[in-house]
């Protein structure tokens, strides 16, 4: 069954979105648009609301106020099929440690209604895990898990690719691989949103920069050299 029929979009839009828990504000009045080919860097200190924003975009949480629109349509109108177009890679890796790399990929491929044959082998290949495919994930290093998690998140070729601090604990080589992958995705027409507090990584990778502090969007502009200096000016000490 092809579940992808019907739902697709080439932009995602936050319209005056707020999210708070009682007195603790996570996000306030955020309006932001990202289109196909963009790599939007959500930058800001820890606790600024980046993860909450990613959760809202992933449809895992609902905004307290405002609306998230996918190609102009609110999530509620698009139904479950919308989720075939969204991929999320978070700091927590969304893998079952007891299962093997292959079992994890097969399970998630089937969950998305995809045929795992071929697809899973290709994903294992691109994660560089073909030799370890049938080993349990809990025996993997952080880098191996991260590569597997990346492939898992991209199995169903999502239009909207959400990354929440994907570089934590990785060596330079692994970071380079993920960065290349992000560029390739954006070039192929994906909308990439990348939340990170690591400016060095964001610099030169992202095409747009959204700075967030205390749940507020304090700037949203095309990426330009000198990111660190502007960040320091707007967010404060780093």
């Amino acid at each position: 069954m092809d579940v992808t029929v019907g739902v697709d979009f080439d932009s995602v839009q936050l319209v005056d979105v707020s999210r708070h828990f009682g007195r603790r504000r996570a996000l306030a009045n955020i309006s932001l648009t990202a289109g196909a080919g963009d790599i939007v860097g959500l930058l800001g200190p820890n606790g600024a609301g980046k993860s909450t924003l990613i959760t809202l975009l992933a449809t895992l949480a609902a905004p307290s106020k405002g609306e998230v629109r996918y190609g102009g349509q609110p999530a509620s109108r698009l139904g479950p099929a919308l989720r075939t177009r969204i991929g999320l890679l978070a700091h927590e890796l969304h893998l079952y440690p007891e299962l093997s790399a292959r079992q994890n990929l097969v399970f998630f491929a089937e969950l998305y209604g995809l045929d795992p044959r071929g697809l899973v082998d290709a994903a294992l290949e691109s994660a560089g895990l073909t030799d370890r495919a049938d080993d349990a994930v809990n025996g993997f290093s952080r880098g191996m898990r991260q590569r597997l998690a990346l492939e898992r998140a991209l199995l169903h070729r999502p239009r909207l690719v959400l990354f929440d601090e994907p570089f934590t604990g990785l060596d330079d080589h692994a970071v380079g691989l993920i960065a290349d992958r992000l560029r390739a995705l954006a070039a192929a027409g994906a909308i990439v949103v990348l939340a990170t507090h690591d400016l060095d990584l964001a610099d030169g990778l992202v095409t747009r920069v959204a700075l967030i502090r205390n749940g507020r969007l304090i700037s949203d502009e095309p990426a330009a050299p000198g990111l660190r200096a502007r960040y320091r000016a707007q967010v404060g000490a780093h």
Binding site: H20, G22, R23, A28, N214
Partner: peptide, 10 residues
């Protein structure tokens, strides 16, 4: 009151 606290922070 929560709203006021939130507004105060801005």
């Amino acid at each position: 009151l929560d709203e006021l606290y939130l507004a105060q922070e801005d």
